[in-house]
Simulated scan of single mutants.
Amino acid sequence: MLTQILIPVGLILIMFSIGLGLQVSDFNRILVSPRAVITILVMQMVFLPISAFVISLLLEMPPELCLGLVLIAACPGGITSNMLTRLARGDAALSVGLTVITSFLSVLSIPLVLQLISPFINGQATIITLSFFDVARQILVLTVLPLATGMFLRTKYPNHSARLESPVVMTTSLFFLLLVALTWANQWENIFASLAAVGIAVALLIALNIFSGAAVAKLMRLRDKEQTTMLVEIGIQNSAMAFMIAANILNDMTAAIPSALYSVFMVLTGLIIVGLRRQAAPKQIST
């Protein structure tokens, strides 16, 4: 299928464009806000996949859709979360720092999560077999290496990289939207058949994560900007990465359906968060 050839190319370009906007100094935010970083990382990398798994079991979703829902929850944030955090007047530097951390950790975290849940969803209609090292190797090649290359170019050639960042981001974003549209067209029958179950699951996942994130942020006494960042980070996932892993690494387009729907739901959710937080904090947008 053409989309399965284009998806890895699109993901490499997306991760490269993210790297162009990052610098090694972005890690400094870890030292400035360690409590916020740890709290958000735990929510992103532990709570989100668990909540997705529980929801899929409660709704008795087929194993491929269950795997796809957990996969999108296990993926890191990306350039969309950075942009929405800035628009919502959150801590943009914290969001960027989290993108760097979670993107690099995803090489181990995503295959680990998939490996842990696969035995619990086996025994149903389809037996799912996953190789931890194969998944990790492909994520490394398709996501971390392009990200690191972009960061290297930003550090080595800052002026040229800064000029390239916006057009590259725009081009890759449009390219990914095209891939999603092609997938919807090619997989419409499967998507339509799964729309009710997956739509409910995605909506529940986002709602649960947002409300839980707000409660945890208050409990941990995070600053207002850090609370905003947390809401965006746990609601916006790298759907391009989830899409690619499902379609090309797991070789299962059915498992890609949750990420296709999530990409729509998360943008709507992000815009709602931006609107609410801008009303709650009518100050100059954080840079």
Score class of each variant (00 low, 15 high):
1 M>Y: 05
5 I>M: 03
7 I>A: 12
11 L>M: 08
18 I>M: 15
22 L>A: 07
22 L>K: 06
22 L>C: 05
24 V>I: 13
25 S>R: 15
30 I>G: 04
37 V>C: 10
39 T>K: 05
45 M>C: 10
47 F>A: 15
49 P>M: 12
51 S>R: 06
59 L>G: 09
61 M>S: 11
61 M>P: 01
66 C>M: 14
69 L>H: 11
75 C>I: 08
75 C>V: 12
75 C>N: 02
81 S>Y: 10
83 M>H: 09
86 R>D: 04
98 L>R: 14
101 I>M: 15
101 I>K: 11
104 F>C: 15
111 P>W: 11
113 V>K: 06
119 P>N: 14
122 N>G: 13
123 G>F: 11
124 Q>V: 12
125 A>Y: 11
127 I>R: 15
142 L>W: 06
143 T>Q: 12
144 V>R: 05
147 L>P: 09
150 G>N: 11
153 L>K: 07
156 K>L: 15
156 K>Q: 14
160 H>L: 14
160 H>A: 15
162 A>C: 06
176 F>S: 05
177 L>E: 02
183 T>G: 04
193 A>K: 03
193 A>N: 05
202 V>R: 03
206 I>G: 03
210 I>L: 14
213 G>T: 02
215 A>K: 01
222 L>A: 02
223 R>C: 08
223 R>T: 14
227 Q>L: 07
228 T>Q: 07
233 E>L: 08
234 I>E: 00
234 I>L: 08
235 G>T: 02
237 Q>C: 07
240 A>C: 08
242 A>L: 00
244 M>D: 00
249 I>C: 03
255 A>W: 01
256 A>L: 07
256 A>I: 06
257 I>L: 02
259 S>Q: 03
260 A>I: 13
264 V>T: 07
272 I>Y: 06
280 A>W: 07
283 K>C: 06
